[in-house]
Amino acid sequence: MLYILNSYIFKLLFNVMIWLTLIGRGGQGIKSASHIVSTAAFLKGYYVQSQPIYRAERRGAPISAFIRISNEPILERGYIYEPSLIVIADESLFIDTNLNKDAILFVNTALDADKLRSLYNIENKRIITYNLTGLTLQILNKSIISVALAAVACRLIGLNLEEVEHAVIMQLEELNMQEEVDKNIELVRKVFELISNSNIENEKKRTKSVSVIDLSYHHPKISACYISVPANSISSEGWNVNKPIIDYDKCTKCMICFIFCPDSAIILNKDNYPVINYDLCKGCNICYVECPTKAIRLERNEATLDR
């Protein structure tokens, strides 16, 4: 069954810039998605600028990509502070994302827009949601959603299927993934089918005003760079596709999972048994791979299933 989404097409007018932000986590293919979008716009003849910003280069670490598309040479660089369109790869990213309330929001989630709005207190008027992970798993048989995200962004910006398909082929060739082309083109066409036309003009960019302040000396309790609350205390719920479950009958308390967990999501209880904090677990599955007694199994995280 196909869902017809409430969707929006930007008009690329003269002297108007599209500011697009893609937000995701390392491993989801955000950088690839941004390259597909910028290439498709480039092929259409626009001035384009695209830049990813990433932190720790590791699966699960937040990553953003900023894309500017214009009819005129672009005299900007770096962060986009007030994007016209934000494409978010999973709902867990709301926690550390500063949303421009005027932006159109696309979120990859199994929730509908109203549920999402009330769950995360989102003020944006225009929210579009779709379970791209489900669609991608169905067509590609894996959860790399870069092409689906790129297709959504291109569709919402108003780029043509022809250029998008061309850009996808170019990107997959660059990554030496020619054998994946057919399935990904199928995915792109599906996304274009799912989104109907409804024209909304890009709004004028509002620029926040800032002022320079005097920074005084702060006590090292504040100004020394350390974290005294549990590491990575931002919830990852909803991002982890597969979550690890410990079988305590098989666990030998070797502590290997505790040591290997890159996010301190595994702590030891008073008996030195490992305990997983699923709020912090990003589902990297390193513990599953490293456990010498195979005491850890994986289960599909319910949050990533249709609800």
Binding site: H219, P220, K221, A224, C225, Y226, I227, S228, A231, S264
Partner: peptide, 14 residues
């Protein structure tokens, strides 16, 4: 100020 202590772990050099 913050310092390493195994009973109350904190992240330094973050």
């Amino acid at each position: 100020h913050g310092y390493l202590n195994a009973k109350n772990p904190i992240s330094l050099g973050v």
